[in-house]
Structures are given as C-alpha cells and as structure tokens.
Lab assay of single mutants.
Amino acid sequence: TYTFKVDNKDQAKKAAKWAKKLGLSFQIEKHGDTFKITVQ
C-alpha cells in the first residue's frame, strides 16, 4: 500500500490516472486543501 498527499485536484487526477494505468485500486480522500491518495 502506497500513500501520498497532493495539494490540488489536478495532481489527484494525475495520480488516479497513473493508478488506473497500472491496474491498481485507489482511494482519494479530501482533507481541506489537500488530497490523500491510497494506492494498493
């Protein structure tokens, strides 16, 4: 499981695209202005 934080929606979208490309499941949680992405 890999967790990282991004500062904006664009970065969150890029991370989601990357995870989908690799066939991984992911969750994006919004914490105020940051997004926490968990990829597994």
Score class of each variant (00 low, 15 high):
residue 1 T to D: 09
residue 2 Y to N: 03
residue 32 G to W: 04
residue 12 A to I: 07
residue 10 D to L: 13
residue 36 K to Q: 13
residue 17 K to N: 09
residue 21 K to M: 11
residue 11 Q to L: 10
residue 11 Q to S: 09
residue 30 K to L: 07
residue 10 D to I: 13
residue 40 Q to T: 13
residue 24 L to K: 03
residue 33 D to Y: 05
residue 27 Q to A: 09
residue 35 F to H: 02
residue 6 V to R: 01
residue 5 K to W: 15
residue 3 T to A: 05
residue 25 S to T: 11
residue 17 K to D: 09
residue 19 A to W: 03
residue 6 V to M: 05
residue 21 K to H: 10
residue 7 D to L: 11
residue 15 A to I: 15
residue 36 K to T: 14
residue 37 I to L: 05
residue 5 K to P: 06
residue 2 Y to Q: 03
residue 7 D to E: 11
residue 11 Q to H: 08
residue 11 Q to R: 06
residue 30 K to V: 09
residue 20 K to H: 07
residue 7 D to I: 09
residue 22 L to S: 04
residue 12 A to T: 03
residue 21 K to G: 08
residue 14 K to L: 11
residue 27 Q to L: 11
residue 20 K to R: 11
residue 33 D to S: 08
residue 28 I to G: 01
residue 13 K to D: 13
residue 36 K to G: 03
residue 38 T to R: 05
residue 3 T to Y: 10
residue 28 I to F: 04
residue 18 W to S: 02
residue 7 D to R: 13
residue 17 K to M: 12
residue 8 N to A: 04
residue 4 F to Y: 05
residue 3 T to V: 13
residue 12 A to W: 04
residue 11 Q to A: 13
residue 1 T to S: 13
residue 15 A to K: 03
residue 27 Q to W: 13
residue 9 K to I: 15
residue 21 K to S: 11
residue 40 Q to N: 10
residue 11 Q to E: 10
residue 37 I to R: 00
residue 11 Q to V: 07
residue 36 K to Y: 15
residue 30 K to W: 05
residue 2 Y to H: 09
residue 6 V to E: 02
residue 10 D to Q: 13
residue 8 N to D: 07
residue 24 L to H: 05
residue 4 F to I: 06
residue 19 A to I: 12
residue 31 H to P: 01
residue 7 D to C: 15
residue 9 K to G: 07
residue 13 K to A: 10
residue 21 K to P: 00
residue 28 I to P: 00
residue 17 K to R: 13
residue 39 V to G: 00
residue 28 I to A: 04
residue 34 T to R: 11
residue 22 L to M: 12
residue 8 N to Y: 03
residue 12 A to G: 03
residue 19 A to P: 00
residue 15 A to G: 02
residue 4 F to W: 11
residue 13 K to F: 09
residue 32 G to Q: 05
residue 38 T to M: 06
residue 8 N to K: 05
residue 7 D to F: 14
residue 6 V to Y: 06
residue 12 A to H: 01
residue 25 S to P: 06
residue 20 K to G: 04
residue 20 K to N: 06
residue 24 L to I: 06
residue 31 H to E: 15
residue 18 W to M: 05
residue 20 K to F: 07
residue 9 K to R: 11
residue 32 G to A: 05
residue 5 K to S: 15
residue 27 Q to R: 12
residue 1 T to N: 10
residue 16 A to C: 11
residue 28 I to M: 08
residue 37 I to W: 01
residue 2 Y to K: 05
residue 5 K to L: 15
residue 2 Y to G: 02
residue 23 G to M: 05
residue 25 S to M: 10
residue 33 D to W: 04
residue 17 K to A: 12
residue 24 L to P: 00
residue 25 S to L: 11
residue 26 F to M: 08
residue 10 D to M: 13
residue 19 A to Q: 01
residue 5 K to Q: 15
residue 1 T to A: 10
residue 25 S to K: 12
residue 40 Q to R: 13
residue 17 K to C: 12
residue 16 A to T: 06
residue 16 A to V: 11
residue 39 V to Y: 05
residue 3 T to Q: 07
residue 9 K to E: 14
residue 13 K to G: 05
residue 12 A to M: 10
residue 8 N to H: 05
residue 38 T to H: 05
residue 38 T to W: 05
residue 6 V to G: 02
residue 15 A to Y: 15
residue 14 K to Q: 09
residue 10 D to F: 13
residue 26 F to Q: 01
residue 1 T to Q: 11
residue 4 F to M: 03
residue 26 F to T: 04
residue 30 K to N: 07
residue 40 Q to P: 03
residue 2 Y to M: 08
residue 34 T to H: 14
residue 36 K to N: 08
residue 1 T to P: 07
residue 24 L to R: 03
residue 40 Q to L: 10
residue 38 T to I: 10
residue 34 T to D: 07
residue 5 K to A: 12
residue 32 G to K: 05
residue 21 K to D: 07
residue 34 T to L: 10
residue 11 Q to Y: 06
residue 18 W to T: 03
residue 20 K to W: 07
residue 29 E to R: 06
residue 4 F to R: 01
residue 28 I to K: 02
residue 3 T to P: 03
residue 16 A to K: 11
residue 16 A to L: 09
residue 23 G to N: 07
residue 36 K to E: 12
residue 17 K to F: 09
residue 31 H to D: 15
residue 21 K to L: 09
residue 12 A to R: 03
residue 10 D to A: 14
residue 34 T to S: 13
residue 24 L to W: 07
residue 37 I to G: 00
residue 24 L to F: 09
residue 10 D to W: 14
residue 3 T to R: 04
residue 28 I to V: 08
residue 17 K to T: 08
residue 30 K to T: 07
residue 3 T to L: 04
residue 13 K to W: 09
residue 39 V to A: 02
residue 16 A to E: 09
residue 6 V to W: 03
residue 11 Q to P: 01
residue 14 K to R: 12
residue 26 F to G: 01
residue 2 Y to L: 09
residue 35 F to K: 00
residue 31 H to W: 11
residue 23 G to F: 03
residue 18 W to Q: 03
residue 39 V to P: 00
residue 14 K to M: 10
residue 11 Q to G: 07
residue 8 N to I: 04
residue 33 D to L: 07
residue 16 A to P: 00
residue 30 K to P: 08
residue 16 A to M: 12
residue 11 Q to I: 07
residue 1 T to Y: 13
residue 40 Q to S: 14
residue 31 H to A: 10
residue 26 F to D: 00
residue 23 G to V: 02
residue 24 L to E: 01
residue 30 K to M: 09
residue 25 S to N: 10
residue 35 F to A: 01
residue 16 A to H: 05
residue 27 Q to K: 13
residue 5 K to R: 08
residue 26 F to A: 06
residue 22 L to F: 08
residue 4 F to N: 01
residue 1 T to E: 11
residue 3 T to E: 10
residue 4 F to Q: 02
residue 17 K to W: 10
residue 16 A to D: 02
residue 6 V to P: 01
residue 12 A to C: 15
residue 37 I to A: 02
residue 30 K to F: 06
residue 32 G to C: 06
residue 29 E to I: 09
residue 18 W to I: 06
residue 34 T to K: 14
residue 38 T to S: 06
residue 35 F to C: 08
residue 30 K to S: 07
residue 28 I to E: 02
residue 6 V to K: 01
residue 15 A to P: 01
residue 13 K to T: 08
residue 39 V to F: 07
residue 1 T to H: 11
residue 6 V to T: 08
residue 29 E to A: 07
residue 30 K to D: 07
residue 33 D to G: 08
residue 36 K to V: 15
residue 27 Q to V: 13
residue 29 E to Q: 08
residue 9 K to A: 14
residue 2 Y to A: 04
residue 3 T to D: 04
residue 4 F to S: 01
residue 17 K to S: 09
residue 6 V to H: 02
residue 9 K to F: 14
residue 39 V to R: 00
residue 29 E to K: 07
residue 25 S to V: 11
residue 10 D to H: 14
residue 28 I to R: 02
residue 24 L to D: 01
residue 22 L to Q: 08
residue 16 A to N: 03
residue 19 A to H: 02
residue 23 G to L: 03
residue 38 T to V: 08
residue 32 G to F: 05
residue 29 E to N: 05
residue 18 W to A: 04
residue 32 G to H: 04
residue 32 G to R: 04
residue 28 I to W: 04
residue 39 V to C: 05
residue 24 L to G: 01
residue 15 A to N: 01
residue 19 A to D: 00
residue 24 L to S: 01
residue 9 K to L: 14
residue 18 W to L: 07
residue 13 K to N: 09
residue 35 F to S: 01
residue 31 H to S: 12
residue 25 S to R: 11
residue 5 K to I: 15
residue 20 K to Y: 08
residue 25 S to D: 09
residue 28 I to S: 03
residue 35 F to R: 01
residue 20 K to M: 10
residue 27 Q to G: 05
residue 13 K to I: 12
residue 14 K to A: 13
residue 10 D to P: 06
residue 26 F to I: 14
residue 34 T to N: 10
residue 26 F to N: 01
residue 32 G to D: 06
residue 12 A to F: 04
residue 20 K to P: 01
residue 21 K to A: 12
residue 37 I to V: 11
residue 15 A to W: 15
residue 9 K to D: 07
residue 35 F to M: 04
residue 4 F to D: 02
residue 16 A to R: 11
residue 37 I to H: 00
residue 25 S to C: 11
residue 39 V to H: 01
residue 20 K to V: 07
residue 2 Y to T: 04
residue 7 D to Q: 13
residue 30 K to R: 11
residue 20 K to L: 10
residue 36 K to P: 00
residue 2 Y to R: 06
residue 4 F to G: 01
residue 15 A to M: 12
residue 18 W to G: 02
residue 13 K to Y: 09
residue 22 L to G: 02
residue 12 A to K: 03
residue 2 Y to P: 03
residue 37 I to T: 00
residue 4 F to P: 02
residue 19 A to F: 15
residue 13 K to R: 13
residue 9 K to T: 07
residue 17 K to P: 00
residue 39 V to I: 14
residue 35 F to G: 01
residue 10 D to V: 11
residue 8 N to T: 14
residue 4 F to K: 02
residue 8 N to V: 03
residue 19 A to T: 01
residue 34 T to C: 15
residue 9 K to P: 09
residue 23 G to W: 02
residue 12 A to Q: 02
residue 18 W to N: 02
residue 33 D to P: 08
residue 19 A to G: 02
residue 7 D to A: 14
residue 3 T to N: 04
residue 27 Q to P: 00
residue 3 T to G: 02
residue 35 F to N: 00
residue 31 H to Q: 13
residue 37 I to F: 08
residue 3 T to F: 09
residue 10 D to Y: 15
residue 1 T to C: 15
residue 29 E to L: 06
residue 4 F to L: 04
residue 12 A to S: 03
residue 29 E to D: 07
residue 2 Y to D: 02
residue 31 H to K: 08
residue 6 V to D: 01
residue 1 T to W: 14
residue 26 F to C: 12
residue 12 A to V: 10
residue 29 E to P: 00
